[in-house]
């Protein structure tokens, strides 16, 4: 029989496996896939850190990424964080009014929680939805159109060329955006307290409850979230398969896992911070 005919006839095909066999096989495959994914993510994380120090610098790549991540997110972040500041102060004042009616510490507690946690965690979630999706979509499209393989053929390491500039830009611009978010939330919160509850801005602007520990926690979260979003999204982009549908799924995964990563990091940093500073 000709070789072609042998291939076409599927000679040597085995008997179909049973249901239990398929279940066990599926379980094993999932476990192996999970372990592979974890190893790949770890590899991307380590290589991103390595190339951040030792990689090849593309002229203007970091600045372009900073513009994409920072400037293009500014309007979105300003509006969203402004509304969240307004809602937080409105509800805080409403609740305090019901219990004691003394609003003079609302500003102090609001500033503390914004600096220590809320600006970073809510801001990073917003950045993850916008920036994470963008990174995954761009890299994912490059994967499905073979551009990432073309980079490899030109001795351009995709992590160095695609993820590292976004990583550096994100660490800087996430911090800048979150600090900006703190300012926006504070100003809008102050105006809300003044306009709706007659709290004088000089009373609201009370930084007595904010100390170096809150600033350290807030800044640590900014840096950690800024680092996590591009690595998680880059991982999702680089593991894209299929066509346009695959890119869509990569984008969704990037948003979900970036938000998950920020929540997990928030928990870890808050716990460590509690034991270091307050316990």
């Amino acid at each position: 029989m000709a070789a072609g005919a042998r291939a076409a006839s599927g000679e040597g095909a085995r008997r179909e496996p049973g249901r239990v066999h398929r279940f066990v096989e599926g379980l094993g495959t999932s476990a192996v896939d999970g372990a592979r994914a974890a190893r790949l993510f770890y590899s991307i994380l380590i290589r991103t850190l390595y190339y951040s120090v030792r990689g090849r610098r593309e002229k203007g790549a970091v600045l372009r990424a900073m513009y994409q991540i920072g400037n293009r997110s500014l309007f979105f972040i300003t509006v969203v964080m402004g509304f969240i500041g307004m809602i937080m102060v409105y509800h805080s004042c409403t609740q305090v009014n019901r219990i004691t009616g003394d609003l003079h510490l609302v500003g102090a507690t609001f500033l503390q929680i914004v600096v220590r946690d809320f600006a970073a965690s809510i801001g990073a979630t917003m950045i993850a939805t916008r920036v994470g999706a963008g990174i995954a979509a761009e890299i994912g499209s490059m994967v499905v159109t073979d551009q990432v393989d073309a980079l490899r053929m030109c001795a351009a390491e995709p992590i160095d060329y695609l993820i590292v500039p976004r990583f550096k830009a994100s660490v800087v611009m996430t911090t800048v955006l979150i600090v900006w978010s703190m300012a926006v939330m504070t100003v809008i919160g102050m105006l809300t307290a003044w306009g709706m509850f007659d709290v004088n801005p000089r009373i609201f602007w009370n930084t007595s409850m904010v100390d170096y520990r809150d600033l350290t926690m807030g800044l640590t979260k900014c840096l950690a979230f800024g680092a996590a979003i591009p690595i998680v999204s880059g991982y999702c982009g680089l593991t894209t398969f299929g066509g346009a549908e695959g890119v869509g799924w990569a984008t969704t995964r990037a948003v979900v896992w970036s938000i998950f990563a920020t929540i997990l990091l928030n928990f870890v940093i808050s716990t460590v911070g509690f034991y270091v500073f307050w316990a």
Partner: peptide, 19 residues
């Protein structure tokens, strides 16, 4: 691999031009 790949030139099916 990267060192060895540098001895290759490759045209991809979808061209893979950098947008």
């Amino acid at each position: 691999r990267q060192r060895l790949r540098s001895r290759f030139g490759m045209l991809f099916q979808q061209n893979a031009l950098f947008d």
